[in-house]
């Protein structure tokens, strides 16, 4: 199955690059913790636990945005994207490899952000963790493709948040609902649906985003 071998190779390349360069991940970690601290000052004294849960999702979404802005940077800076597109691998493999690597990065971020949140604000339930995992998958799938679109634009740092936020709204609804509702199963199922539908769409349409 050379398709999955290609995907694994691409994902491994990104992970190794980040391990060596160590520029994006530490910045994202610091950003998410700083954001949580800012949120403490933004919340009025009598705001309940529930408001804080909402802010957790804001922190995750905006940290993801920060990372996604740099998602295609290695390819852009070295001009490698053209090379990848011309390579005999399926173009969708490029998207999948990049999305998987980003998922790992977001996993690391979440592994730091959730304990920090538990310490600063309120304990984190298993439903929240499941919600974060599912939402991260959706963010990676959609965000990687949108970042590739933004890479073609003159105003890429400006346009990526504009493209991403409307599509992130269902994820925030799913995540916050999973955290605070009495029936988190519905929201987790919804997140799964979002992931499935949009991952399929991204997988099918990525080659049109990078080709002429």
């Amino acid at each position: 199955m050379t398709y999955f071998a290609d995907v694994a190779a691409l994902a491994r390349k990104d992970l190794r690059l980040e391990l060596r360069a160590r520029d994006t991940l530490p910045a994202m970690l610091l950003f998410v913790v700083s954001t949580l601290v800012v949120f403490h000052f933004a919340l009025p004294a009598d705001a309940g636990e529930l408001a804080a849960q909402g802010l957790l999702w804001l922190a995750l979404v905006f940290t993801a945005l920060l990372g996604l802005a740099r998602a295609w940077a290695p390819e852009r800076e070295s001009g490698a994207l053209d090379g990848l597109v011309l390579a005999p691998c399926d173009r969708s493999a490029i998207w999948l490899g990049k999305a998987l690597a980003t998922f790992v990065f977001l996993g690391v971020i979440s592994a730091v952000a959730l304990p920090a949140f538990a310490v600063f604000f309120a304990p984190v339930s298993w439903e929240t963790v499941a919600g974060v995992a599912l939402a991260n998958a959706g963010i990676c799938a959609v965000g990687t493709l949108l970042a590739a679109m933004a890479a073609a634009s003159r105003t890429r740092e400006l346009v990526l948040p504009l493209l991403f936020l409307p599509l992130a709204i269902p994820l925030v609804v799913g995540g916050v609902g999973a955290s605070i509702s009495d029936d988190p199963g519905r929201f987790l199922a919804f997140l799964g649906l979002y992931d499935g539908v949009f991952a399929l769409l991204c997988w099918a349409s990525f080659e049109y985003v990078v080709s002429e």
């Binding site: 679109m149 073609a152 003159r154 105003t155 400006l158 346009v159 504009l162 049109y208 985003v209 002429e212």
Partner: peptide, 19 residues
């Protein structure tokens, strides 16, 4: 915002269509 920040051409058409 996306469409008008990309150079006119087949790339812009494809990206707009996917969006």
């Amino acid at each position: 915002m996306l469409r008008f920040s990309i150079e006119e051409g087949p790339r812009r058409a494809n990206i707009s269509a996917v969006y």
